[in-house]
Each structure stands twice: as structure tokens, then as C-alpha cells.
């Protein structure tokens, strides 16, 4: 690998890391604001103008809290849990293409940290590992509520990953590639997958809600039953990591939804632009879509009540999986028909 390429990737990684963390931090602020707006309130407005320093205040507070490990906890796993949660949440961002190539200093820079040719599998894999953070943290806490929550989280993730995976297969079948860049490029202009696969989109979206543990599927941390869920025993920045990881996954899930179904950085009329203008407009388009989904996630959270656990399982296994399987079958038939298999 050339040095210039190494530097390019390093800069990209640092930028992506900072942007993801910054967005996650401001997602917490935005979540509280959105909640307030939906409830006819103002929301945080004390720290700085319009309360925009609130995330800093929250983070600072968490940093200076006492960092303790409960006596009966499994010390190393207890520390490892939040780390895994944060690590996996951040890793998924690396394969998402943020825009077309940018030309800087005579170099063609791909706005994607790693163009892995199995990008979507990479994301699914890391999403699955993400549950280890919750599992390990919940188990190591040596608290029955945390354990309950961890068990719930893992069974929920396993159930919804199936339907999610089938929806991804549909997209992959239409594109013929597992690489995210190819999937996005196949949706050039307004040729978005959501118009061809609305059912897959709805199912994927519901599964994404469940995978990120957001309401109405936030059973792993439902306060009324499990105190705080898997992070009951956590304090200080360890808890901050868990909460933060949740917002990072919220952001990444929104980005993945925009990539898979809403054309990523494609936007109508993109053929009129080229080069760096196109790349920058692409970033804007990508982030607009992502933020719209972040907002919808929050909107849903502040509208819908939480499911009961049996309803959750019922929905996952008895509704979403059959629906996505039928959708898969129909897509397969249509593709086969178009390829002329029945001639």
C-alpha cells in the first residue's frame, strides 16, 4: 500500500470516527428536543444557546462520575462489555459509501473507508456481534435484571436478524452484488430500491428498529420491568458508552437503510453534476436521507408504546419472516422471468 493511500485512509477513518461520534452525541440532544416537541415542551435549553452544549455537559458529567465495578461482577467482562458495544457500533460505518469519489490534490479519493466486496455481510456480521456487548455486560453485572435484559436482547436480535437478512438478500438479488458501492450505484438517480421492494423496506425498517433496541422494541431496557436493563449496574462513562453505542447504531442503521433502499448518495438530477460538486452534493443527499431516518426513528419512539415480549416474538417469527420469505420468492420468480428462464 502506498503511503499516500495510507494517509488518505487514515484521514478518512479519523473524519468518519469524529463525525459518527459527533452525530451520535448530537443525536442524544436531538432526541430530547424531538421528544419535547412531540410533547409540547421546549426541551434542553440551558447549556448554551438553545441548549446546544447539552451533549458536552452530559458527557462531562459522565466522565466525572465515580467509575466503579460492582463487587460480585466479573471484572474484566464487565469492562469489556461497553467496549464491544461501542466498537461494533463504530465498525459498521466503515463500509458505507458516503459519496462518489472526491478528487483532491490530484488523487481520486473514495469516500468509503473500505470497499469490501461483501460490505453488507460485514454490516450484518457486526450487527450480530453487537449483541455480545449487551450479553457480556448483562451477564458480567451479576444482576438478575441485567441478565434478563441480556437474554431478551439476544433472543430479540436473533429473531429479527433472520427477517432482516432475507430483506437484504432481496436487495442483493436485484443488484447481483454484496458490495455496498455496487448496490448504491445500481440505484442511480431516482432508481431507488424502495420503489421496487416496498415490502422488503418495511420489514427491514421494522427489523432495524428491533436491532437497535429502539422503541417500540426497547424491551432490553424497559425501565418499568427491568430497572435499566443490561446497564443497570453500570455507571460513569461505561454506561455512557452503552448509551452512546445505541445512538451510533441509530445513525448507522439510518445510513444503511438509506444505502440499501433510498439510493444512498444518489439524488434525482445527479447527471447534471460531476467531479467534486457531485461528490459534495452526494454527501449532502446521503446525510439528508440519514437524518430523515434518524428523525423517523425518534418519531416512532415518542409515538408508539412498547410491545409485550410475546408479541415481539410473535411479530418476528410469525409475521415478518413469512412476509419476507414470500417477498423473496416473488422477487426470485420475477428476476427469473426477466432473465428468460421460463421461455
Amino acid at each position: 500500500m502506498e503511503t499516500s493511500e495510507l494517509i488518505e485512509k487514515l484521514v478518512l477513518i479519523v473524519v468518519l470516527f469524529a463525525v459518527t461520534l459527533g452525530i451520535a452525541a448530537y443525536a442524544t440532544y436531538f432526541e430530547r428536543k424531538v421528544a419535547a416537541w412531540f410533547q409540547d415542551r421546549i426541551g434542553p435549553d440551558r447549556a448554551g444557546p438553545f441548549g446546544i452544549l447539552q451533549p458536552l455537559a452530559d458527557g462531562g458529567k459522565l466522565f466525572f462520575k465515580e467509575d466503579f465495578v460492582p463487587e460480585a461482577a466479573e471484572k474484566w467482562l464487565f469492562i469489556l462489555g461497553p467496549g464491544i458495544a461501542m466498537f461494533t457500533a463504530l465498525m459498521t460505518g466503515s463500509v458505507i459509501p458516503w459519496s462518489t469519489n472526491l478528487t483532491l490534490f490530484g488523487q481520486d479519493i473514495a469516500l468509503q473507508v473500505a470497499d469490501v466486496n461483501i460490505g453488507i455481510l460485514f454490516i450484518m456480521g457486526f450487527l450480530s456481534i453487537g449483541v455480545y456487548g449487551i450479553m457480556i455486560g448483562g451477564w458480567a453485572s451479576n444482576n438478575k435484571y441485567s441478565l434478563f435484559s441480556a437474554v431478551r436482547a439476544s433472543s430479540q436480535m436473533i429473531s429479527y436478524e433472520l427477517a432482516m437478512g432475507i430483506c437484504v438478500i432481496v436487495v442483493v438479488m436485484m443488484t447481483g452484488s454484496l458490495g455496498l458501492r455496487e448496490i448504491v450505484d445500481a440505484q442511480h438517480g431516482m432508481n431507488w430500491n424502495v420503489f421496487y421492494q416496498p415490502v422488503a423496506f418495511v420489514v427491514f425498517f421494522i427489523c432495524a428498529l428491533a436491532e437497535t433496541n429502539r422503541a417500540p422494541f426497547d424491551l432490553p431496557e424497559c425501565e418499568s420491568e427491568l430497572i435499566g436493563g443490561y446497564h443497570t449496574e453500570y455507571g460513569s462513562m461505561k454506561m455512557g458508552f452503552y448509551l452512546f453505542a445505541e445512538y451510533v447504531s441509530l445513525f448507522i442503521s439510518s445510513a444503511v437503510i438509506s444505502t440499501l433502499f433510498f439510493g444512498g448518495y444518489n439524488f434525482p438530477g445527479m447527471d447534471n453534476f460531476e467531479g467534486n460538486t457531485l461528490a459534495i452534493l452526494g454527501v449532502v443527499a446521503m446525510f439528508t436521507k440519514t437524518f430523515i431516518f434518524v428523525f423517523i426513528f425518534m418519531w416512532i419512539r415518542w409515538t408508539l408504546p412498547r410491545f409485550r415480549f410475546d408479541q415481539l416474538m410473535h411479530l418476528g417469527w410469525k409475521s415478518l419472516i413469512p412476509i419476507s420469505l414470500i417477498n423473496l420468492l416473488i422477487t426470485g420468480l420475477v428476476i427469473a422471468f426477466n432473465e428468460g428462464w421460463f421461455k
Binding site: W37, F38, Q39, D40, R41, W299, W302, T303, L304
Partner: peptide, 14 residues
């Protein structure tokens, strides 16, 4: 339900 909450976005806060 989401339409109801959406309308609240534009309400005056109390």
C-alpha cells in the same frame, strides 16, 4: 398515531 404526534410538532409549547 404518528400523524397525531406529528401535529404536536407544530403546537405551541406549554
Amino acid at each position: 398515531g404518528m400523524w397525531i404526534t406529528f401535529k404536536h410538532l407544530f403546537r405551541k409549547n406549554n
